[in-house]
Design a protein around this nucleic acid. Structure first.
Lengths: 207, 207
DNA sequence: GATGAAGTTGACCGAAGCGGTTAACAGAGG
DNA sequence: CCTCTGTTAACCGCTTCGGTCAACTTCATC
C-alpha cells in the first residue's frame, strides 16, 4: 500500500476505514465493489486505487487494522486485569462500545472476514488469525471462586449463557441497521445488573 | 408466477426454495443473481424464469412462503397453548429446529428480507408484515405467576435475557456456516435446563 | 411410429458493472 | 512561469446481469 495514506488527515483515514468495513460487511469479498467503497468514503475510485494498489490489498489492510485496534482497545480497557468477573465484563463491554462508536461496522466486518471463503483472501485471513485468538475466557473461568456465586451453579454454563445473551442483544441492534450505541449501552448495563442479582451469592459467610 | 410450479415434485419445489433462501440470505437483493439460484437448485436459469416471471416475483414468493410456513409450524407445534413457560419455549424451539432442518437458510433469509432496503422490493415486504408480527410474547409474559419463580426476580428482564441468549446461540451457529442442527438442539436443551435451575422457585409452598 | 403438447435447456442479447489505468486538471510554492 | 502533489472524469477490456428464444428431449395419445 501507499504510505501516503498515513499522512492523510485522520478523518479521511477513518472515513476510508469505515467505508471499507461497511461495504465488506454487507457483501461477500467478490461482490464488494471498490467504487462503492470510494463513494462511501467521499473520494473517487481512482484515488482509492492510488492509496491501495488493488482490492485484495485494501481488504487485508482492513482486516489487519480491525484486529489490531480491537486488541489495543481491549488491552487498554483493563478488562484483562480485573479480578472481579462482572467488573471485567463491564470494562470489556465499554471497550467494545467505544470501538463501535468509532467504527460502527467493525464487528460485522470481522465476522464476515473470518468466515470469508473466497480463495483470493481466505488463506491470508486464516494465516494471520493465530496471534489474535482469544484465550482469556478460559483463564477467567478457572480463576472464579465458586463461593462468590449461588450454590450449585454450573459456572461454565453461566458464562456461556451470559456470552450468548450479549451476542444476541448486540445482534438485535446490528440487524436493525444504523445502531444506537447509547441505547445499547443501557441494555448491556441492565443485563449486567440483572446477572448480579441472580448469580451472585448475596449473604456470603461472615459478611 | 406460473402455477405449474406447484405440480413439480415436492423435492424440486423445496430445492428451489432452499436455493433462493440460500443465495438471498448471503447477498443483497440486487446482488443475488438468478443464475446462482438456478445452479443451486439444480435447474437451468431459463427454467427458473419459466416458473417465475422475474426476480422480484421469485423474491416476494420466497418471502411469503417463509412467513407462511413459519407461522404454520409455530401454530402446529402447540407452543402457544402451553401454560408452562418453559414448556412453551421447548415446543417453540422444536418447531424452529424442525424448520431449520428442512430449510437451513430460512432464518437468515427472513432477517435479511425484513431489513432489505432496495426500493424494488422493500415496500412490498413491509406491507405484508403487519399480519405476521409476533404478539405472543407480551401475552405470555402477562400470564406468568410470579410465585413460580425465585422471589424478587424481574420477569420481563428474565424473558428478554433468555430470548437474547437463544438468539446469540443461534447466531453462533449461523456464522459458522453449514449448521449442525443436532448440536444446536443439544445446546438449546442445556440452556433450558440451566434456566430452570436458576429461575424456578424449587420449594413452592405446600409441595 | 407419427403427432403434438409439456418440460427443459444452451446460446444468445443489450445493458450494466467490474477492477484497474491514464491523461488531464487544480492548486500551492518557489 | 514552472513543477510537484493531490485528485478526478473518462476510459478500457472483460465479466456478469436479467431476461428471451429457438431448439431439443420426454412422453402420453392416437
Amino acid at each position: 500500500m501507499n504510505p501516503k495514506y498515513y499522512s492523510l488527515p485522520k478523518e479521511k483515514q477513518e472515513a476510508i476505514l469505515n467505508a471499507g468495513f461497511h461495504v465488506f460487511s454487507q457483501n461477500t469479498y467478490k461482490k464488494s465493489p471498490m467504487s462503492e467503497i470510494a463513494n462511501a468514503a467521499g473520494i473517487s475510485k481512482a484515488l482509492l486505487f492510488h492509496y491501495f494498489h488493488n482490492k485484495k490489498e485494501l481488504y487485508l489492510f482492513l482486516w489487519d487494522t480491525c484486529c489490531r485496534i480491537t486488541v489495543e482497545e481491549m488491552t487498554r480497557s483493563g478488562a484483562y486485569e480485573q479480578k472481579d468477573l462482572f467488573g471485567s465484563m463491564d470494562y470489556g463491554m465499554q471497550a467494545k462500545l467505544r470501538l463501535m462508536r468509532q467504527y460502527p461496522d467493525i464487528g460485522v466486518f470481522a465476522v464476515r472476514a473470518f468466515y470469508e471463503k473466497d480463495p483470493e483472501v481466505s488463506a491470508d485471513i486464516q494465516k494471520s488469525m493465530g496471534q489474535y485468538l482469544n484465550t482469556h475466557a478460559a483463564k477467567k473461568l478457572q480463576n472464579l471462586d465458586p463461593e462468590d456465586f449461588i450454590p450449585g451453579i454450573d459456572l461454565q454454563m453461566m458464562y456461556r449463557e451470559m456470552y450468548w445473551a450479549s451476542e444476541g442483544c448486540l445482534w438485535e441492534y446490528i440487524q436493525r441497521g444504523s445502531m444506537n450505541v447509547d441505547e445499547m449501552e443501557k441494555d448491556f448495563r441492565k443485563l449486567l445488573e440483572f446477572w448480579k442479582t441472580i448469580y451472585l451469592r448475596k449473604n456470603r459467610d461472615g459478611i
